[in-house]
Every structure is written in structure tokens, then in C-alpha cells.
Design a protein around this nucleic acid. Structure first.
Lengths: 231, 231
DNA sequence: CCCACTTTGTGCGTGCTTTCACAAGCACGT
DNA sequence: ACGTGCTTGTGAAAGCACGCACAAAGTGGG
């Protein structure tokens, strides 16, 4: 219980920081497109929608890439963040489930420029298989294992209906894929060592609804509460 | 459970808890569909993919809705969470940007059953305007203000290209919408009091890439590091 | 009625995140 | 060479979140 050294003191970068690095990266690339060479933590923080102290602490986890009195060199920082995120190498992605969402993902331009190469599109529906989407032929789900092997797929994206998601996930895992991005509204069951991230469209809406309701409640209740409750 | 005890329900549910309530809700509804009437925190936690102590603590923020020695009544809990999230009332949603993603959202069945009604689809592209998507006519973006007013839209969803997103957001805000779900890869600038949530497809991929790289690095570097570095 | 058993609700220690506030570092003008 | 003005990098403090472990509360059998 007391001795837990097997925890290989990870590469020190906090999870919360990792989640923000892509945001910084995007803001930096926007600056780069505008020909800006140098940026202060204050300006970059504003562009990324965060507090400047947080930004500086986040960047400090990568090393000291700023110049006091000046700021950060945009190009250099872009490179450092890209490298840290692993975007300087190529990632081969397979998308399963070529419905509207799958097509949206396949056509999303932001991937190619960031080290992600869409290697294959897979679907179970015979009326979709064989069609061409985003310059790729949609292949039948049965060839998943073969595709993973031959294309060296390292990231699997699941955009299927909920009922099929677990099956697809298991096949990905079986085929050796250890990173999965899941858009289906189910909790996937995978062995240790497999990294699953979930994006859920309706959960976000529900969170919005919660806050909206709370705002509405407060507005209407403030006056009444003042008169009826003592706190 | 026979009578209605006074709920000591406070305002002040932690944000982390709010984010998980929709997950619990979904798991509960799955149980309900299977005809299960009662569930323990342990079983529900497993279904939702969380720790049971965390689940109990989360639920305790809503009040005491469980029975010791037994568990939680599924139907009652569904109702309580729904109410807390504001899903017992109707939310009118407008989606702007009817590309693949917009269509995926419009066709996503999970909304209607959870208090969200898609009231309008809007786009700027003349070749899309007028077409019918998910039993709704796509209207021109110019009618945004009119639609928000006449349909009582309270939640705006932005699924446009990045370049158009800020403009749409501003128009939503101007029209009185205070909840926005943004799928465009930009940081939106909105006044205080407006709640923006962001879903970013490529950020999630980048986070996956980071972890994948770290796993790969560690595997190959462990031995070398022991010999070459002192830390 | 009592006892054995189950499961909730929560106090508490621990570790992660955020924010503040400021010394240290660098550029530039004089 | 030196002072002035900015901006970074980081201790330290405060705030959250997580999960353990257990008392309290309920069920059911005898």
C-alpha cells in the first residue's frame, strides 16, 4: 500500500495541460497565418481563451521556450507543442461507420495538416460499401483486421450506432489498435493499456441545458428568495 | 419512497458532477429498457464506467434518493436526474451549418427523447437552403433572428466552417440566445452571461496521439534512460 | 424481536489544478 | 555600462476532485 514506485513517474505533463495544448497550437497557427512572429503569454492566452498565468505554467512544462521581456517565438512554439503532442509523426486513422458523422470526419480538413492521415473508411451497410467518400473507397467492416495491419492503423474512430460500437471496439483492440475515439453514446469496455476518448454530442447539450435552467431559476427566484428565505 | 420527503436540494452541484449526470442518465435508461427496477451504486457505476463511491457522492448532491441495503429505484432516479438537468422542460434548438456534421446532428435521434427539439436548420449556401433534412426545411441564415424569435430558440448549435462561426455566434447572442454549442474549431468571443461549450473533433485526436506517443516512447526508452539520464 | 447481511451517504486524507504575486531575466535606449 | 520597462517562470496558497473506509440505515430470515 505504502510503496508504489512501479508508477513510472510519467513525463510530468499534467493531463489538464495536455488537453489545452491543442488549443494553444491552433491559436498559434492562426497567428502564424497572419505573419506574426512573436507573441506574449497575455496575447496568446486571450486568443486561446484562458488565463495567462495558466498558459505560462502549461508551457513551462514543456521547457523554457519564452524570452523574458519579449514573449514566445511563434514558429518555435508551434514546433515544440507539435512535437510534444506527437504530431510530427504520422498517425494512421481508420473510421468505422460512414453515416453523416463519419462523412463529416472524413471530410474534415483539419486532420491532414496535423499529422493525421485517414487510412480507411469502413462500414457494414452494403449500400455504403464501395462508395467513394473524401477520395477513399468505403470498405466492408469485415476487412477491419486486414486494413489495420496493412495500413498500420494506430487510431480507430468509431462513428457507428450505439449498438455496434462495442463490437467494433473489441475488434480494433484485437487487431492491436490501442487508441480509440468513440462518438457512439455507450461506455466502451476495453482492456488496460487501451486509451479510449469519448465525444458525446448529446451530453454537451444536456450540460448546456443544466446551466440554462440554473440561470433561469436564479433570475426568477432571486426576489422571492430574498423575501422568503434567510440564509 | 411512498411519501415525498422534503428535498434538501442545494444549488451548488460541482461541475464535474454535472458532466457525469448525463452519463448516469443514459445508463439508467438502458436499465429501464431492460425492465430493471432497482440498481445498486456498484452496478450503476460499472455501467457508467466510474467508481461507485464517486457515483454515490454525485447522487448525494441531488439529495438522498437511494435506499440503504437496496439501492436506487431506477425510474425515480431517471426522473430526478432529468429534472436536475432541466430535461423535463422543452429546449428549442437551432442548428446553423448544414454540412455533414449539421446533418448528423439533425438526424441524431438521441435529442428528441431528452427534451431537445430541433426547431430549425439554417445555412448560408443557396444550394442547401430549401432542401429537406430530417423532415425540416433548411432555411437561409438571414432568417436567424426571425427563427429564434418565432420558435423560441434557447440553444444555438454552430456547425459551420471556422471562418463563419464567430459571426453566427454574435448573431445568436444578439438575438437573445444564451447557450451555444460550438463545433467549429475557433474560440468564440461572447459577452458574460452567455454559456458556450465547445466540441472539437481534432483536439480529441491530438490528445490520443499524445498518449499513444508517450506509451511508445516509454516502451523503447525505459532501458536507455536508465543508463543515460539521472533525474 | 434480533441478528446477519447489504448498500447508502459522507468525513477525511491525498493529490491535482488554478490563480496570485513577484523575483529574475532580457531588450533597448541613453 | 547602466537603468527602465516588459514579460517570463515559478513558489506558495487556495480550491477542487477523487476514492477509501466506515457508521448509519435498511432488508430479510429465524
Amino acid at each position: 500500500m505504502t510503496s508504489r514506485p512501479p508508477r513510472p513517474r510519467e513525463r510530468g505533463i499534467p493531463e489538464a495541460t495536455v488537453a489545452r495544448l491543442p488549443v494553444y497550437l491552433r491559436a498559434l497557427q492562426a497567428l502564424q497565418d497572419r505573419g506574426i512572429l512573436t507573441v506574449s503569454s497575455e496575447a496568446l492566452a486571450t486568443a486561446a481563451g484562458v488565463n495567462s498565468a495558466k498558459l505560462r505554467k502549461d508551457l513551462s512544462h514543456l521547457g523554457s521556450y519564452g524570452t523574458r521581456g519579449v514573449g514566445y517565438e511563434v514558429e518555435y512554439l508551434v514546433y515544440q507543442i507539435s512535437r510534444e503532442l506527437g504530431l510530427t509523426q504520422d498517425w494512421s486513422v481508420a473510421i468505422v461507420g460512414i453515416g453523416n458523422l463519419g462523412r463529416a470526419l472524413a471530410n474534415y480538413g483539419g486532420f491532414g495538416s496535423r499529422g493525421f492521415r485517414i487510412a480507411a473508411l469502413l462500414d457494414a451497410d452494403p449500400s455504403v460499401v464501395g462508395r467513394s467518400v473524401a477520395s477513399l473507397d468505403v470498405r466492408h467492416i469485415d476487412s477491419l483486421e486486414e486494413v489495420v495491419r496493412s495500413k498500420g492503423v494506430s487510431i480507430g474512430v468509431i462513428a457507428t450506432p450505439a449498438a455496434s460500437a462495442q463490437g467494433v471496439a473489441s475488434r480494433f483492440v484485437e487487431a492491436g489498435v490501442t487508441s480509440i475515439l468513440n462518438f457512439a453514446p455507450v461506455v466502451l469496455n476495453v482492456p488496460d493499456g487501451v486509451d479510449v476518448r469519448k465525444v458525446d454530442l448529446s451530453i454537451e447539450l444536456q450540460i448546456l441545458a443544466f446551466h440554462a435552467q440554473r440561470r433561469a431559476d436564479g433570475d426568477g427566484r432571486e426576489a422571492r428568495r430574498a423575501g422568503l428565505e434567510l440564509t
